[in-house]
Nucleic acid binder design. Structure first.
Lengths: 129, 129
DNA sequence: GCCGTTACTTTGCGCCGCAAAGCATAGGCG
DNA sequence: CGCCTATGCTTTGCGGCGCAAAGTAACGGC
């Protein structure tokens, strides 16, 4: 063994789903989890600070992957697309959040423990000959 | 005003720097913040669960953006690239972590508050005529 | 002197984020 | 009724990037 086998993948964070781990989509999902009844396209657009085209594309991706449902209806004689989180989407998003939390914990802990102190001598960079 | 102006960009998370917000690079930065003395290429590769090519590419990007320094030296008659976080890189990474934490807080709070209860009647989806 | 191993770098491809352009309908206004 | 602007999205185009496979180089047995 290579003396660091036990740490293999320690920071690989495989739970960071590519579909979710993207600024715009993270915004969308967070918005939707905060609005369980669903959100109309324009509101979502404003909350996330996205352009029409952008939001449209990301919603298509999220819908394709069954994270959200898109209900196209009419309100006040205007088309209105209402976006809602699916149960499975909610589940997977929560799982992702757990990983994110782990990242923050790992990093915060490390950042606090050794800005100037370092880790005295336990470091692989100084492995013996 | 559109009755939701105060919430514009509420979930836009502009602090999510594209350079950092990427699984592989997030892994690298977290590894490095946990090892302030620096890490040799192979160790970093194992910690992050990355292939050689991948790690090389991401290190080039991080180095380009002045997040890390790459010291190429020789140890045990073999080439050894040691990666270290720069002060500014550390600073920016910590800033990013703050935003991540905000994301987790926003989402966790929302997810806890309304899985089944919803937000009775305050929802933009049910705005009056 | 070949052969495998270690330590990277380079190349190539496919997908994706993003903005600009497009399309369709509604609602004033003369 | 015809025009014009605003709203609500969708589609298109392209530049960039993540990723894996191939390439380079140097050392260490045998």
């Amino acid at each position: 063994m290579t003396a660091s086998d036990r740490d293999d993948g320690r920071f690989s964070y495989e739970g960071l789903d590519r579909i979710i781990h993207e600024r715009a989509r993270l915004s969308v999902l967070t918005s939707l989890v905060a609005h369980p009844k669903g959100l109309p396209f324009p509101d979502l657009k404003r909350l996330c600070g996205l352009t029409d085209g952008n939001l449209s594309r990301h919603l298509a991706v999220l819908s394709e992957a069954d994270f959200v449902t898109l209900e196209k209806r009419f309100a006040q004689n205007r088309p209105q697309t209402v976006c809602r989180l699916t149960a499975s989407g909610r589940q997977r998003f929560i799982g992702y959040l757990g990983v994110l939390e782990q990242v923050v914990r790992d990093a915060a802990e490390a950042a606090a423990s050794g800005p100037e102190s370092g880790r005295r001598g336990l470091d692989p960079a100084t492995k013996p000959a």
